[in-house]
Nucleic acid binder design. Structure first.
Lengths: 381, 381
DNA sequence: CTGAAAGCGCTTACAG
DNA sequence: CTGAAAGCGCTTACAG
């Protein structure tokens, strides 16, 4: 009975006659949602029964003023009795709009939802969706391909996330004359996009650490996925690494210097934890850990706590993003704030105006800001 | 230039000629995504140009084997040149399926995305979406009404979340013969649903505290939204409160007892923090704080830290959910685990089989489990 | 105020 | 292997 599920001892069972459900269990009645049913009623049927034209039926739902009150009432009543509603897909086809925004994702939905960055981004994008009274379609890659996912989506436009390598997506979107906006991508000049000053932000935080005297550094970077290794990657991660390199160069350091360790791990708290643990038990302990995302930094802080290493007394830690948690964690995290919600909102706004055919500047650049809190301090002597 | 955005000092600006973007800024070229364009090419046009029937064009895309290789190649090439792709909406209409699952939400997308519970749920549901190669439509209420959102969604079925008061949604879904599954709702007997033993879970954790000798208690409950006050609410929250009441009754306590404080707040970390601060600076300090969600409990822990109150020495804290964070927080949180991901996955599986017309038991009940960690201990004497 | 007709863009038996 | 025809379910000028 206890089929194991991945959250441990929770289990699935057929509902017992218990007090936890709203009512007792039922005998094996046919499930109404799958019951073989007669065909869905159409406008034609309603028209026949009500003794009017299909036009009239359509007007009753879409342009009531054009019908006499009696006719309208009769149609609506017949529709009610028959259980008729206009078919949304037919409506989309004939109206040429879907009232839904598409979010073209670089990863599967589970991976996206594990990442708090996307939650923030979706809050912003969701504000626009809400304001416009639309819906949001999450379109993950199909057979690992973002390109493949484009043709199947019934949307009025796309926000495209994390397109660091264009495999034809931009051309496809254009060919379909589909409005779109690129985010966290390597956007060509003539394509609408919203980006962030990743390079600047990263340089800022690294300089901050350098000024505090840190010279033995560890960088916690994340893999962007299978194809997004350091080589060929040209999105936000590449820009952050470039800012890092730039700042290091100013004091004669580089990613290849023996005092700079560069670790690539998946972007999760647990991975930040493990990597830090390893780093701190090695011969060459850094005095500062530079994480390329807050989630990694917070994992690092956990590990240092566990090891009884004082922050920032012995080791400083910095993040990137300024997730809400960065301000809750102890010590509070020094990090680079990027406007995640604003990014979603601006992308949504740009997409809406593109859909409306309004002209606008194709690029928006959002600024980062260095937030110095408690997790960074002078290098130990 | 620094238009203020809600994440503080981040700001929007037109892209400067900087090094942060992938290339320099461009002159005011027409935006390709909004450029007035000639009509989208159709299958008819491709057929004409290629000198074949529309049938053949369709076969080239959907059933290549039925065409001679040459014909097919010619059609595909013409399509390529013209930039033709089958229109997804037309395809949906004629095929009678959308290849997308709908998630009918009780709140706007921003509110949903702020809640880590939904992230977990979406990980599970996303696994099914991924496995099936489908997309996921997030359908928030339209004009505050879940009912209104139903007719506009082009989906093959709905997972309905948090339908604690049925305002006609179930009837509407049935009338449309739309497959659906209820989650976190007050599901009637003959409607497919997946629920959790909220009542039992809550009773378990309260008994745990009672056995530790706690008799002065504070309950941190959350508002489910405008219409989901304690009265009339019949979903998971009501069941948790019922489990709470049951356990309290066993030692002669109740929600009305002067030693039991009941606080209703929004379900955020900051609200848990504030409420706890208030509770602990009042005359009647509890020895245990029972939060109805982890996020609230974690906020409470933050507040106790700030006040220098020892956990569980002076005050015990418990949560509900077992979010990943519950195991990271210090002290580790005693809580009730509910299988959030499994809930999403089971709901998705049930929906898929409903869509396929397979019969199945209409109810699935998932089990909770009490997870005792460090945040609960004997009541101070 | 009401309706006959055309059309949205495709797919799929069916017939050759 | 290929095509003419019907149909998916609606909306919207257009004409009365």
């Amino acid at each position: 009975m206890n089929r194991d599920l991945d959250e441990g001892d929770a289990s699935v069972a057929v509902r017992p006659t218990g007090s936890d459900a709203s009512s007792g269990s039922s005998p094996a009645r046919p499930d109404p949602s799958t019951r073989p049913s007669r065909p869905r009623p159409t406008a034609r049927l309603v028209a026949e029964v009500a003794g009017v034209s299909r036009t009239a039926v359509s007007f009753a739902f879409n342009d009531p003023a054009r019908l006499s009150p009696e006719t309208r009432a009769r149609i609506l009543q017949v529709a009610e009795e028959l259980g008729y509603r206009p078919h949304p897909v037919a409506r989309m086809l004939v109206r040429g709009q879907t009232r839904t925004l598409g979010l073209l994702l670089p990863q599967d939905i589970p991976q996206v939802m594990e990442n708090p960055y996307y939650s923030q981004f979706l809050v912003g994008l969701g504000q626009v969706v809400h304001r416009e009274g639309m819906s949001l379609l999450l379109a993950p890659p199909i057979r690992s391909s973002m390109l493949q996912a484009i043709p199947y989506a019934a949307v009025d436009g796309f926000v495209v996330c994390g397109l660091e390598i264009d495999r034809g997506e931009v051309a496809e979107l254009r060919r379909r004359r589909m409005p779109f906006v690129l985010v966290d991508s390597d956007a060509p000049d003539d394509v609408p996009s919203v980006e962030v000053t990743d390079r600047q932000g990263m340089a800022d935080v690294v300089r901050h650490l350098l000024q505090l005297g840190h010279r033995r550094l560890a960088v916690l970077s994340f893999e962007g996925g299978p194809d997004r290794a350091r080589h060929g990657y040209r999105g936000p991660l590449a820009r952050r690494i470039s800012g890092l390199t730039e700042a290091l160069g100013e004091v004669g350091l580089s990613l290849d210097h023996p005092d700079v360790q560069f670790v690539e791990i998946p972007c999760t708290r647990a991975d930040g934890f493990r990597a830090t643990r390893q780093l701190m038990t090695s011969d060459h302990r850094p005095t500062a850990i530079i994480a390329l995302s807050d989630i990694l930094a917070i994992g690092a802080i956990d590990a240092l706590h566990d090891l009884g290493i004082s922050i920032p007394g012995e080791v400083s830690v910095t993040g990137f993003d300024d997730q809400p948690e960065a301000a809750w964690v102890r010590p509070r995290l020094t990090t680079v704030r990027q406007p995640m919600q604003a990014k979603g909102r601006v992308a949504g706004d740009m997409l809406i105006s593109a859909i409306r055919g309004e002209s606008h500047h194709p690029h928006q650049l959002l600024h980062t800001a260095l937030i110095v809190r408690e997790s960074s301090g002078p290098a130990p002597t």
